[in-house]
């Protein structure tokens, strides 16, 4: 009976029903915490104390969104249980978008170039260089973060003839590249071992026959790369771009160390700072925090909603690899 559905078989109908119930519970648990943040963001701070287990918004209000997204009068904010020290979520979301977009563009493009070299070019020491690149996978980020921080801080980027003018960047008065967007992107911008490995595997799978015609036409590697390999790899590039974007959006350790200034502060760091400034002991501003948290999740949720199938496929693909 179940073979018709293309999936395995489960003994009895009862067993099947129980299995579905378990799966439903798991799905419910996966959504619940996010739903709970949404519910709390629409409640008041006094409301959630009155009815802590009410699954619907208590004393339903949009004021939390007003104070997290806008700048209402301080008295109203304090009356709602806020500190007035709410950060601008939109600014942090903007910063995250800048950093994540920059990293994604750089990483996907430069790693595609490297992957092409490893998949298609013959040169001495190719396997050695590739293995060396891959070995970077085992290096814990905190290990390289310590010297990277010193490097970024002392970096006065000079190209020999002229010092690059970075004064237009927010926070560029800070030491070196600390508290600048380039500084936040730099460690992930040029390469990650995973991205190169991922694309190389894909390029190796592309039939060489397609390139033969171009080779006969005398196309050089540049043209083969841009005109044949890249267009044929769009699905893999998109998949990698999604993974890179999500990873960059979720990154905390590096921006926490290198980008604390509000002008460049990304969402993860801003949220953590917001929590830290809320006096945790007496009456935390839960509704403000949950509103900010939910707003910060929206871009990722949207991305997931639109590209969910690709993300799921990408995960499963990486599982078989």
């Amino acid at each position: 009976m179940s073979t018709a559905a293309g999936v395995g078989n489960v003994g009895s109908a009862t067993g099947r029903r129980i299995a579905w119930a378990v799966l439903a519970v798991v799905m419910l648990f996966s959504i619940l915490p996010v739903f709970w943040a949404l519910r709390t963001s629409l409640s008041t701070n006094s409301g959630i104390i009155l009815e802590p287990s009410n699954p619907l918004p208590v004393e339903a209000t949009f004021f939390n969104y007003e104070r997290v997204l806008g700048d209402p009068p301080i008295e109203e904010v304090q009356a709602a249980g806020g500190t007035g020290g709410e950060f601008s979520v939109l600014l942090a979301v903007r910063n995250s978008m800048i950093v994540a977009t920059g990293i994604t563009i750089g990483q996907v493009f430069f790693c595609a170039m490297a992957a092409y070299a490893f998949a298609r070019l013959r040169f001495k020491g190719r396997e050695l260089v590739f293995t060396l690149f891959l070995s970077a996978l085992v290096v814990p980020p905190i290990f390289t973060m310590i010297p990277n921080f010193l490097f970024m801080r002392d970096l006065q980027l000079s190209l020999g003839f002229t010092s690059l003018d970075l004064s237009w960047l927010p926070g560029s008065d800070k030491a070196g590249w600390i508290n600048t967007f380039p500084g936040l992107m730099a460690p992930f911008f040029l390469m990650t071992p995973f991205a190169i490995f991922f694309l190389r595997q894909f390029f190796l799978g592309i039939s060489r026959e397609v390139e033969e015609a171009a080779i006969i036409d005398g196309a050089g590697h540049m043209r083969r790369f841009f005109r044949i390999i890249l267009p044929m790899s769009v699905p893999a590039l998109v998949t990698l771009a999604i993974i890179t974007y999500v990873n960059s959006w979720n990154e905390f350790l590096w921006p926490f160390v290198a980008g604390r200034d509000e002008s460049v502060r990304v969402v993860t760091v801003a949220l953590n700072d917001f929590k830290a400034q809320t006096p945790g002991t007496t009456r935390p501003d839960w509704t403000g925090l949950m509103t900010a948290t939910f707003v910060a999740a929206v871009p990722i949720l949207l991305l997931f909603g639109v590209l969910g199938r690709r993300v799921v496929d990408a995960i499963q693909f990486s599982g078989i690899k």
Binding site: V26, M27, S30, I31, P33, V34, V246, W249, N250, F252, V267, T268, V269, L271, N272, T293, A296, A297, I300, F304, G308, R309, V311, V312, I315
Partner: peptide, 14 residues
């Protein structure tokens, strides 16, 4: 599959 993957896609901090 997408539903059970949802927690993974959210930032750790969040």
């Amino acid at each position: 599959r997408a539903t059970i993957l949802l927690p993974w896609i959210l930032p750790n901090i969040l």
